[in-house]
């Protein structure tokens, strides 16, 4: 059918052009964020001593990578109209478990298997945490903020019990490579975070899960009437979020060669939410700007670094971060009204 063929051609062309008002609006925000980031970099080049060193890049990347990884999952959860407060606690659990596994008698006797188990085991536990959160939200109808508060409180408690409340140091070069290794001069975890961001972005844009995610967050009743498996979509989303948090926990532990259950992932939920919000996520759901989240995390990181590197006390950076969030929320609000 020739008519159909011409339609095909048009359809394919449309993918590339995508002159959608919605997208262009979002792009405008992303462009603004990217421009702010660039301005900040230029400011640093002019102001901050030794800014253009590879070491500076490495420091920043290793500080921001765990935030990015957690914020990716958080963005998905926020897109459903929920929020996950338990990510920091899940990081602590996963982080506390890993050294226990490869440091156990069995792990020492089978270093290869032990190392693999030290990766997979904590991630499975993290996934189970997500399954728990998602089930509470989907099947019992518990509000996300309450549902995830349970693990927020108890998760860190479990991690503390696992480590007897002490700082557990270890030596395991293969494992610490995850946190300290570099490729092309940049920390491995930076590459991991970037790769994950790309994967998640593609998942959101190209897969049926991504479409369901946005429709569930955008209008849950309409989605449900159209046959969308709402509960499944939500459970998977919490599961992905927790698993990513677990990975971030492993990375932080590997970086420090020590697991400190009391501190791993502390306040991470807020950093992740901040990155998502600055990146353009709406807490009411229905939007998942992954690239925005990535830029948002980078922006907050670089602002903090700029202040610290120029002698502003650490505490003051919190105030500035808060100001950035206020501006981001204000931008979102004013955009909605126009």
């Amino acid at each position: 059918m020739s008519a159909q063929n011409s339609l095909t051609g048009r359809g394919l062309g449309g993918v590339g052009e995508a002159p959608a008002p919605r997208r262009s609006r979002l792009n405008r925000r992303l462009l603004g964020l990217a421009a702010a980031l660039l301005a900040l970099v230029l400011l640093n080049v002019a102001m901050t001593p030794n800014f253009l060193q590879l070491q500076t890049l490495a420091v920043n990347v290793s500080q921001v990578a765990p935030v990015v990884i957690v914020a990716l999952g958080m963005t998905l959860v926020i897109a459903t109209g929920g929020v996950d407060l338990s990510v920091g606690a899940v990081m602590a659990v996963a982080g506390a478990l890993a050294p226990l596994i490869f440091g156990s008698g069995w792990g020492v006797a089978n270093p290869g298997l032990g190392l693999a188990a030290a990766f997979v085991g904590p991630l499975l536990v993290a996934a189970a945490c997500g399954l728990f959160n998602g089930s509470l939200v989907s099947f019992l109808g518990v509000q996300p903020i309450i549902a995830t508060l349970i693990l927020f409180i108890s998760g860190r408690g479990v991690a503390l019990v696992l480590t007897n409340g002490n700082l557990q140091t270890f030596t395991n070069p293969s494992f610490t490579w995850l946190g300290t290794g570099r490729a092309l001069g940049i920390p491995v975890m930076g590459w991991i975070a970037l790769a994950l961001a790309l994967v998640v972005a593609v998942v959101v844009r190209k897969t049926i899960y991504g479409r369901y995610l946005l429709s569930v967050g955008g209008n849950e009743r309409a989605a449900s009437l159209a046959g969308t498996p709402v509960a499944t979509v939500k459970i998977w989303t919490y599961l992905i979020c927790s698993t990513l948090a677990g990975l971030a926990g492993l990375i932080v532990v590997a970086q420090n060669s020590a697991s400190d259950a009391a501190r791993i992932g502390n306040l991470m939920e807020l950093d992740a939410i901040a990155a998502a919000v600055v990146g353009g996520a709406a807490l009411s759901g229905g939007r998942a700007p992954i690239l925005g989240t990535l830029l948002g995390a980078l922006f907050i990181q670089l602002v903090g670094y700029t202040l610290v590197a120029n002698g502003v006390p650490d505490e003051a950076t919190f105030i500035v971060t808060a100001a950035i969030i206020v501006i981001a929320v204000w931008l979102q609000d004013s955009r909605r009204r126009t």
Binding site: A20, I208, Y212, G218, A222, L225, A226, G227, G286, R287
Partner: peptide, 23 residues
């Protein structure tokens, strides 16, 4: 309340129920 997903496009709204067959 039960029909449109307001922020999604015409295209995404129209194919919401059809998605499994389009994937």
């Amino acid at each position: 309340v039960e029909g449109i997903v307001p922020d999604l496009s015409v295209r995404e709204n129209l194919t919401l129920a059809l998605l499994p067959r389009l994937s």
